[in-house]
Design a protein around this nucleic acid. Sequence first.
DNA 1: GTTATATTGTTAAACAACTTGACAAATTAA
DNA 2: TTAATTTGTCAAGTTGTTTAACAATATAAC
Lengths: 416, 416
Amino acid sequence: MTQYFGYTSPQNVRNLNKHAALDLIRFTAGGISRVELAHRMALSRAAVTSIVNDLLETEIVREAESRSVNSGRPPIILEINPNNDCVAGVDMGATHISIVVANYAANFILEKEIPFNIALGPKPCLSQANDLLLDVLSEASISLEQVKAIGVGVPGPIASDAGMVVAPPIMPGWDRFPIRATLEKMWGCPVSLNNDAELGALGEWAYGAGRGVRNLAYIKVGTGIGAGLLLDGQIYHGATGSAGEIGHLTIDENGPMCTCGNRGCLEALTGGQAIASQAQEAVHNGKRTILSEIVPVERISAQDVAGAARQGDLISQQILARAGSHLGIAIAGLVNIFNPNMVVVGGGVAQIGDLFLEPVRQAVQRRSLPAAAHAVRITTALLGRRSSSMGAVVQALTIALHHLAEGKEVRKVPVT
Amino acid sequence: MTQYFGYTSPQNVRNLNKHAALDLIRFTAGGISRVELAHRMALSRAAVTSIVNDLLETEIVREAESRSVNSGRPPIILEINPNNDCVAGVDMGATHISIVVANYAANFILEKEIPFNIALGPKPCLSQANDLLLDVLSEASISLEQVKAIGVGVPGPIASDAGMVVAPPIMPGWDRFPIRATLEKMWGCPVSLNNDAELGALGEWAYGAGRGVRNLAYIKVGTGIGAGLLLDGQIYHGATGSAGEIGHLTIDENGPMCTCGNRGCLEALTGGQAIASQAQEAVHNGKRTILSEIVPVERISAQDVAGAARQGDLISQQILARAGSHLGIAIAGLVNIFNPNMVVVGGGVAQIGDLFLEPVRQAVQRRSLPAAAHAVRITTALLGRRSSSMGAVVQALTIALHHLAEGKEVRKVPVT
DNA sequence: GTTATATTGTTAAACAACTTGACAAATTAA
DNA sequence: TTAATTTGTCAAGTTGTTTAACAATATAAC
């Protein structure tokens, strides 16, 4: 409400307004007219006309066909002009890397995902990322020069200004490695480095389950568990970029040991590894489950448990329900602290759907303040595995479009 | 970083900049010069001169004596002009109400605190608040007309726009009662209604332990336990005003029953009531403690435990250490989720100091992500019992000063 | 079909608030 | 004294808005 220390220099006013108009055009489903822009931006129609003319002249925006209304002159719908250039979103996970290429209108061009091991350290990983990008581009017959900006997500806390991860729990060898600088040199275009869960939140907010939601939390359940927070429509990083690290919340003081040295962390109860271990133990104890068909027992993975649960395997369903209930306790804490409008659960395990989500919802209903519990909707990610990479696309587009809008060249370095 | 949908209308630019300048003058300890303002606001010196001239003309700001520097013309220090008008901050707690009256420079004029029972409901409570205010004012020889704005804090989630509490856990009878409207009619001046923990955060940020800290959490430990969050220098309310409600975080699934129906909530382990009960039980079990001098046993309060601990009573120290350790688990969760620069612990129990704070720090060090734990400082409130009421003063001053800066009359209704 | 009505989008003049660059003011150091 | 340095002011120029009138384009009514 009261914002201390906000200020504006009039030089920037036009750029700020251009960005605002551009973002409203980008993120309003079905486009938006000048009058609606004027309304949403609290500016006069004349001012919007002038701003839009700038955007039309530089061909960032184009006019679509008019939409007919009840009476009066039909509004001209504005939309992003998808020219031949494009951007890319890279999501580096613990075990997979995926790349999405999209045009300026955020229309999906091509996607590719391959196995990956982030523990190999920055040099081999970044070189693998480069190979995959070149691979995708060649398949889509796009040259690297046409890619004007690239968003990158990694599973660690980011020092945004520095473009590196600092003290990451699960990225051995990456601490303070200059990721952004390396990639910008490699690809010759601006790179935005972000936390993968934050990108997931952004992706779901822009094109997924949480379109336009003010306060959104995205929970990424995979090998690790992390949350991305969108507060008042902005990514919230925290003091050192490690906001939303819910994986090591204490859920049960007397629970199983966690890799971090404490007992009963969320990750030790609900993480992919924990689910797999619980299943292996169940088989070992001779419980009746179709998982016992998998040999050796050590190969049973969280995916297998999810698959078995979907086929009606009771033991698997029980394991997932308990995991969901533990996750629910953590989310209940998040809801009490952060009071979001929506929690989007993404990542591998979340694909299972209500079987996993229902215990989460129950725990939140029970353990959160009624007002907060009532206000929050809990859903699965609409973009599925693509939440984070689409978030990376959003960031890349933000760079590319806003540079264009300010009349700057986007690409800094020509690729040799 | 990327702020979507931000926009500026040039009409407001001047007012925005006036507010920004005013806030920098208000909250910079020791005042600030025009050049420094220009630097912090990213404006030219000429623009700042013009803005400051406006503020000088309306007598909101005045020039203090120059500060001598190494070489060059010494800067003229600007400060808020404390004229004869004033504002008030009201903190309604569960068991006490306190009122602070301050001039425009936020200089303390008078304070008063009396017992209070918020459970009596809005009408008697607000009338009692009125009595106390008139009492304080008459003692300071100030007329109600001289009070230009009043900030009010209550221990419940606030719907800011509506000026009421919604579904409060500990304010029976207050749900959706039009608090702000009632008070504005009663006092004839603008009233700002806020959550008490949020005000505590604001107070400590403005004049206390957390001056200028970007991401600050204030923990109020009293009858209930609540947190106020200041993110990027702004109060964070959440979707329904119930952000920071950490009192019912689950700390121990198998812990003691809580009034909310769940087990092992923070409040059931660390709240004033919980501390008192544990002490009573210790005495009942015949433990050696000076608390046993208090009869009947049921009269032992958290304050007594704190007093005994300070006098070296071992049992009391143990009880408080355990409470601190449980609070530490909750704060560790908060630190993992919000990654603040500072956590300020306030409220009655916190006055004990390190005896209580050290276990908190230890728990946070153990249970938070190293990067986050390293970034956060944990301290007691510098303003002591006055954190919230000074936060209320900040809000009142924001209203009064900003109205003045915009050339509006502050008082809306003349008092009959 | 024409006319009335409603709404969107554009244009030109007026206005507000900034920047730039030159200059005045006030101090310390040489 | 003079030079150097920094703060603060002034006038001209620039930018980006608002206002208010007007043009454009549809539906609905007659």
